[in-house]
Simulated assay, not measured.
Amino acid sequence: MKIPTLEDNRVKLTLLGMSNYKNLLEIAQEPNLVQYSPSKIDTPEDLKDYVQTAVDGYYNRTTIPFIIFDKQANAFAGCTRFGLINWKNKVLHIGWTWIGRDFQGTGLNKHMKFLMLQYAFETLKFDKVEFRVDERNIRSRKAVEKLGAKLEGVLRKDTLMLDGFKRSTCCYGILKEEWEELKKTI
């Protein structure tokens, strides 16, 4: 699978791997950065394991993980990925996204999500992109809704969190037929 570099004037997304993940060590240690995620990334070992899981998924053709470079700040900002890629049904998820506090609210996320949606619909020719968000994560839910994704339902108590809490997950989607109109507004 050929990995694209997704890039515009603001952001550059390149393949995340064992050779570049150390650029994220400092950001990954920010307190509560992934508080709504069942993943642990705040120690060098945890981050390495997290990235190894993403890389394994890449080799199994179920994920495409990216490291995020903010061109405006001239700095690595975090990571994101395509995941749960279903090549037969042409459906994938965008998620596993975390960016450092200094990059939040700057418009960076909007740029990278646009590039990812554009690639999913226009290059991969997928029929649907999904987002899964912890029901309590209002900020991320609003960001996904701002992209034009529609709430399709809530999976009740479906994910075990690190602290033992069972979260409910909001399922959002964008269909290929909606993309042409949506991309004018993102």
Rank of each mutant, 00 (worst) to 15 (best):
M1S: 15
M1G: 14
M1A: 15
K2F: 15
E7I: 13
D8W: 07
N9R: 09
R10C: 09
V11G: 01
K12R: 15
L15W: 05
L16M: 11
G17D: 14
G17E: 06
G17I: 07
M18N: 15
M18S: 14
N20Y: 10
N20Q: 11
L24P: 01
L24V: 02
E26W: 01
A28W: 01
Q29T: 06
Q29R: 09
N32G: 10
V34T: 15
V34I: 15
V34L: 14
Y36I: 03
P38H: 14
P38A: 12
P38G: 09
P38N: 15
S39G: 06
S39F: 12
K40G: 05
T43N: 01
P44M: 06
E45M: 07
E45P: 00
D46M: 10
D46H: 13
L47R: 04
K48L: 08
D49H: 08
Y50Q: 03
Q52E: 13
Q52Y: 05
A54C: 10
V55S: 13
G57K: 10
Y58R: 08
N60E: 14
R61S: 12
T63Q: 11
T63D: 13
P65D: 10
P65F: 10
F66Q: 02
I68Y: 02
D70L: 02
D70T: 03
Q72R: 12
Q72S: 09
T80L: 04
T80E: 02
F82V: 05
G83S: 15
I85D: 04
W87F: 11
W87T: 13
N89R: 12
L92A: 13
H93E: 15
H93W: 14
I94M: 08
G95Q: 15
T97V: 09
G100V: 03
D102Y: 12
D102W: 05
F103S: 03
Q104E: 11
G105Q: 11
T106S: 04
K110S: 11
K110M: 12
K110L: 09
H111A: 05
M112E: 08
M112D: 05
K113N: 08
L115Q: 01
Q118T: 07
Q118K: 15
Y119F: 14
Y119E: 00
E122I: 01
T123W: 08
L124W: 09
K125D: 10
V129H: 08
R132L: 14
V133H: 01
D134G: 03
E135C: 04
E135K: 06
N137G: 01
R139D: 00
K142C: 00
A143D: 04
V144R: 02
E145Q: 10
E145W: 03
K146C: 00
G148D: 02
K150V: 02
K150L: 00
L151V: 07
G153Y: 09
V154D: 05
V154Y: 10
V154A: 04
V154R: 11
R156D: 06
R156L: 11
D158S: 12
T159P: 02
L160R: 11
F165T: 12
F165V: 06
K166R: 13
S168H: 07
C170E: 04
C170G: 03
Y172K: 06
K176F: 07
E177T: 09
W179L: 02
E180W: 06
E180I: 12
E181K: 13
E181F: 13
I186C: 08
I186R: 03
I186Q: 04
